[in-house]
C-alpha cells in the first residue's frame, strides 16, 4: 500500500508551491459559528463531475438530512463545468459555491488567478491520510481510478486482459470502446499516464486497434454490458460498482491504474461560503468516505479502506499507476490528436 501511495505523493509534489499542509492541520476554533451561518444561508450549489453517481447522491442526501440544508448540484463533465464557471463569472453571475473536480482543473483555475478563492480550514481535513493534504485553494475528496471493463460473455475468462498490453492483441480490433482521449477528461488522463508508463509505441499500436471513441462514460459501460463492445477503457472503478448483475467485470491491470484526484474548491464570490465549508467537511466524515470506498473509490481519510466491503477493497486500495499533470497537458493533447486522428 505504501508503494502505491508513494506514486500519488510524487504527483502531488509536482503541485509544489501550492501545497501548504499547515493550514489543513490547524484546528478550526469557530466551527460552531460556521455551522450556524451555514444554516442561515440555507442552501448550497455544487458543481460536480459525479455524473449521476449514486454514492455522491447518498452523501449529499445525508448532508441534507443532517443539517436541513438544501444542496443543488450541476453535474457535468470537467471540461464543461470549467467552461460554465468561466462564462458565468465573466457575465457577473456567481451561482455556484463549491466545485468537486479533478485537481489539475483547480490548479489551472489557480494559475489563471480567477474563478476560485482561498479555502478556509475545515476540521475533518486533520484526518487526511498521507500523502493527501489541503492546499490554499483545494481540499482532497477522493481518488477516482481507472481500469478495463470487460464483457464476460464476449471475452472468455482465459482471454481476459491482465495488462494494458493485452488490449493490443489483434483479435480485439474494433471491439474496444474508449472515452475520447483527445479532449479533456478521463480519456486524456489515461492517454497521458499510459504514454509515460507503458513501453514506447504503446499508443500507436492501440490506435491500430481502431478504438471507437465516445464521451458518455456512464452510458458506455452499459453498452459494453449489453454486448456492443468487448471492452471499455478507461473504466472508472466506481462507475462499475452499480453494474452488479450484468455480464461485466472490471480489471485492474498489473501495471496499475491511472487515476485522478478529485478535490473541492471554493468558487469566487460563492453566495453560500459557510455552507460550502460545511458540505466539504461532511464529505470528509468517515461515514461519507466509507460510502465512497464501498463504491470502489479510494478514500482520502485514514482508516476507511480497512472498513470497506470485501468486494470494494481491491479497488479502494488498488495499485495506482499515475496521474496527469497540468504542465504536460498541452503536449499530451496534441500528441493524442496526432495519434488518434
Amino acid at each position: 500500500m505504501a508503494a502505491k501511495i508513494r506514486l500519488a505523493a510524487l504527483a502531488f509534489a509536482m503541485a509544489g508551491a501550492l501545497v501548504t499542509a499547515a493550514p489543513a492541520q490547524a484546528q478550526v476554533s469557530d466551527w460552531s459559528s460556521v455551522v450556524q451561518a451555514a444554516k442561515k444561508e440555507g442552501s448550497v450549489v455544487v458543481y460536480s463531475m459525479a455524473l449521476g453517481a449514486p454514492y455522491y447522491n447518498e452523501v449529499v442526501r445525508a448532508f441534507e438530512r443532517k443539517y436541513g440544508i438544501k444542496v443543488e448540484s450541476l453535474d457535468l463533465r470537467a471540461s464543461e463545468l470549467v467552461e460554465r464557471i468561466r462564462t458565468e463569472q465573466a457575465a457577473g453571475r456567481f451561482i455556484g459555491d463549491v466545485e468537486l473536480i479533478s485537481s489539475t482543473m483547480i490548479e489551472e483555475q489557480v494559475v489563471a488567478d480567477k474563478y476560485v478563492q482561498k479555502f478556509p480550514a475545515v476540521p475533518n481535513a486533520a484526518n487526511l491520510r498521507q500523502p493527501f493534504a489541503t492546499t490554499d485553494f483545494a481540499v482532497p475528496a477522493y481518488i477516482q481510478a481507472f481500469g478495463i471493463l470487460v464483457n464476460t460473455q464476449l471475452v472468455k475468462p482465459e482471454e481476459q486482459p491482465k495488462s494494458w498490453s493485452d488490449l493490443l492483441d489483434p483479435k480485439w480490433k474494433g471491439k474496444i470502446l474508449s472515452d475520447d482521449m483527445r479532449p479533456l477528461g478521463s480519456g486524456s488522463t489515461m492517454f497521458a499516464v499510459l504514454h509515460k508508463e507503458m513501453p514506447a509505441g504503446f499508443h500507436e499500436k492501440l490506435a491500430r486497434q481502431q478504438l471507437v471513441f465516445s464521451r458518455d462514460m456512464r452510458n458506455d459501460a452499459r453498452r459494453v454490458a449489453r454486448g456492443e463492445y468487448a471492452f471499455y477503457i478507461p473504466q472508472v472503478f466506481a462507475f462499475a460498482s452499480d453494474l452488479k448483475g450484468l455480464p461485466v467485470k472490471v480489471v485492474a491491470p498489473v501495471e496499475g491504474a491511472p487515476y485522478a484526484l478529485l478535490e473541492f474548491a471554493l468558487l469566487r464570490n460563492a453566495p453560500h461560503p459557510n455552507t460550502a465549508r460545511l458540505l466539504v467537511n461532511h464529505f470528509l466524515e468517515a461515514e461519507s468516505q466509507l460510502v465512497y470506498a464501498n463504491a470502489w473509490n479510494a478514500p482520502v481519510i485514514g482508516g476507511i479502506v480497512e472498513r470497506a466491503n470485501a468486494d470494494a477493497r481491491p479497488f479502494a486500495e488498488s495499485k495506482l499507476m499515475g496521474a496527469a499533470t497540468l504542465a504536460e497537458r498541452p503536449g499530451m493533447m496534441e500528441l493524442a490528436r496526432k495519434i488518434y486522428k
Binding site: Y47, L51, D75, I95, N219, R222
Partner: peptide
C-alpha cells in the same frame, strides 16, 4: 441553462449520458 434553470430536455439528456436510461 445553469444550476437551477435546467429544463426537462436538458435533464433527460444528462440522465441519458449518465447511463440512467
Amino acid at each position: 441553462y445553469s444550476a437551477g434553470s435546467e429544463v426537462l430536455s436538458v435533464v433527460l439528456l444528462r440522465l441519458w449520458g449518465n447511463g440512467q436510461s
